[in-house]
Amino acid sequence: MDPAGPEPTGRIEVRGLTKHFGSFTAVDHLDLDVAPGRITGFLGPNGAGKTTTLRMLLGLVRPTAGTATIDGRRYADIPNPLTVVGSALEATNFHPGRTGRNHLRVQAAASGVSDKRVDELLELVGIPAAARKRAGGYSMGMRQRLGLAAAMLGDPHVLILDEPANGLDPEGIRWLRGFLRHLADEGRTLLISSHMLSEVEQTVDDVVIIANGRRVAQGTVEELRGEPTAFVRTSDPDRLTAALQQRGLRVAPKGSGLQVTTEDLAVVGDIAHASDVAIHELRSEQTHLEELFFNLTETEGDRNRLTGATSARAGGSPDLPPPTLPPPSGPPVDPSVIAAPPADAKETGR
């Protein structure tokens, strides 16, 4: 879009980013890298500081300290930024008395984009007819799609999406995954925040996890996931260990049973059967990533219960103070259980 300048690459760099809301530290010396042309999941429990970080990156919130740049420039220094960075922050950013189409036409006028593109995008996200009605009656899914269309308006290289799957039904989430993959295949850089690992785990290449406004982990999904392991409890651990090791599997004692480095439970069962050992329990274990994330979200739930209605939203800061991070432990849990309701529902429900 800027023929005079160098081709944008879409690298996002965050260095020492800090934000205090009064005495509360929402984001605490955060470093963050998003590589060009990849999908990066920005994960953390509700109140970890994700939204505040994204809002600082987009020039909406003024950092207390540190920098956040896109291709080496602050957002406010990018001329006509919608053509470089597209973002969808919240699902509620529409005037209820204005149609979705007119909302996009306002944004198009502000960034010099043609009105024809507005209608093309409404086709692309699948709401061409509905967008001619006033936005007050839109469902959550409609709002998310309209938000995505707004983000795509200037055909940007970089897309920053805050909880894009919130409020989508399973069919909508499937559509979203395909849509995001399509965008990434076109070479765009995507930064997607979520408080649900399961929502983005299959979509993203890289993961950044934050809690308490600080970075907890960063890496590719494969790196953070670690090797798949199985847990087996048996009548004769020594004999089974020997048999498994004989077949080249790594085995270590764990609790009342053994941890085997494999994702194939059948192999373990077959070996046990062949060695004439009785199996009392055999299951896949959580990956390291799941375990790490579960501990964050679980304790975050406790924290919400304690703070209750005094949560920071009313006090002007959008994020809750998250808890300290416990060591990874606890029983294996289906990752779908991690799917916590949105912060609002949780706070009012208790």
């Binding site: 406010a76 930024p81 950013n93």
Partner: peptide, 9 residues
């Protein structure tokens, strides 16, 4: 938010 995203100045 949308207004300042389009025109951050």
């Amino acid at each position: 938010t949308a207004t300042f995203l389009a025109v951050p100045r």
